[in-house]
Design a protein around this nucleic acid. Sequence first.
DNA 1: ACCTGAACACCGTTCAAGT
DNA 2: ACCTGAACACCGTTCAAGT
Lengths: 194, 194
Amino acid sequence: MSTIERPPRADAARNRERLLDAARELFAKHGDEVGMEEIAAHAGVGVGTLYRRFPTKNALLNEIAREHFANFIPMAEEAERMEDPYAAMVWLLRRMCETTEGDVGFQMAMLGAKGCDWQGIEEAKAPVGEIVGRIIERGARSGALRPDLTADDFPILACSLAATIYFHPGGGDWRRHLELMLGGLRGPAATPTA
Amino acid sequence: MSTIERPPRADAARNRERLLDAARELFAKHGDEVGMEEIAAHAGVGVGTLYRRFPTKNALLNEIAREHFANFIPMAEEAERMEDPYAAMVWLLRRMCETTEGDVGFQMAMLGAKGCDWQGIEEAKAPVGEIVGRIIERGARSGALRPDLTADDFPILACSLAATIYFHPGGGDWRRHLELMLGGLRGPAATPTA
DNA sequence: ACCTGAACACCGTTCAAGT
DNA sequence: ACCTGAACACCGTTCAAGT
């Protein structure tokens, strides 16, 4: 029983795009506090239509979080191309924070905020995790990074930075947090520059 | 117009204690997910009584969070008595984490969780902040801690540890996080022992 | 097929009625 | 004074009726 994929009706496809656009914008600004009614209205459709495309508010959050994590992949790849693994971590972590800073919904995704169900998000995080794992391994071996640093440490660090961004917004506290964190990641043979 | 403080009726006082007990227990286990109805039932009173004592769910969270922060004061005092400021920070941060680990509601208070209004909690945090400020100042000067470390850094660090406890529970990830953090706090003249 | 919005469920909060 | 629980408001979700 082969299931033939039918292209969706034109208006349906358009509505889906509009809903994602509205959700992206409103989640970015207000996190998960926005109501579904509000998102639907902002997209110019009824709530029923929203629920037809996304079975739950959480599914919508997931969809958009996945997009964001995918955006991290090229950043991680660029970091991996740098010779010094310490410099690569400095650059990547800062870049991730800067990206996360303007989007409350994504901050929640990075935290894995309770109350939401981020099931299925692991697959979106995995590629970045693998790339970073290679950077860390290389740095730990060369002495550019703390010798016992592991790929498993990365989620902890990323989440903790996200926490500062989310819970201490505005004042740029995450830059200070990153600075202190980097002092702890640095290995005995890290390049003296920043 | 002097307002004479009347002692509350015996049953009222008892109800208040029961409500706080119930809230302490249920917030610890489930965070702010517990319903007000549930707390009232657990205390053996009606919801109306709960709202008579605490005008809002948030007021109840605040009350209990204040208690918790007060418990940190003697810990901070004990830390201050240690000669080595680095050892003091190691001990105090670990102690705070261990205390926080078993209480979801308090984890939220440490984070300053969004959606709740932690107004008025600053006064409860302040005494600990002052003590820690003195430890940090002493350590930064002596070289036991990072020379540029400030009292203002403490809330960032504490919040970020709380984030790990809250968002990565169970596996003891906060111990690893603390270890990495301490590597960054350590000064050039820190005692070599742990 | 898809769209809509009134209706339902859930939980924080209020208030009229009781002691 | 204080206690109670039914009633209200709000928001996520469902579903009968319409195109």
